[in-house]
């Protein structure tokens, strides 16, 4: 997942290892709510979107250090640099590990 702050929103994209987009969302800092901008087709059902909106709200708040009060249905844990939010009601687990930032020079002359 990649997130960026844009004015009053935190905008984020979740995609898999092959770059295929899963979910795009924005979190409004004034309303403290998530808007789903894009959901991949097989997740694009109203009942799934409803759960995603709620769970992603807590994920964003957790990862950005904002006050987060998810309630008894959720479990939060931090372990070895990773942050995990478990939605016990729907048996969903979100685990976030920071991507390694290393400056590496490659033989083709590029750096990252």
């Amino acid at each position: 997942m990649v997130m960026n702050r844009e004015d009053n929103d935190i905008v984020g994209c979740m995609f898999n290892e092959f770059g295929v987009s899963g979910i795009d969302f924005s979190y409004n800092l004034n309303r403290h709510s998530v808007k789903l901008l894009h959901v991949m087709p097989f997740l694009d059902k109203w009942y799934i979107r409803m759960v995603l909106r709620r769970d992603l709200k807590y994920c964003v708040e957790l990862l950005t250090g904002m006050p987060c009060a998810p309630g008894r249905r959720f479990e939060i844990s931090c372990d070895d640099g990773s942050t995990t939010l478990s939605d016990r009601q729907y048996n969903l687990t979100f685990t976030f590990s920071p991507l390694e930032e290393t400056l590496t020079e490659y033989s083709d002359g590029t750096e990252e």
């Binding site: 990649v2 905008v11 994209c13 290892e17 092959f18 770059g19 901008l37 990252e112």
Partner: peptide, 16 residues
């Protein structure tokens, strides 16, 4: 070398 150009974030992600 995989580059993902994101339209929403106007950013790119490079994986190797």
């Amino acid at each position: 070398v995989q580059t993902k150009q994101m339209s929403l974030l106007k950013d790119k992600m490079v994986s190797r």
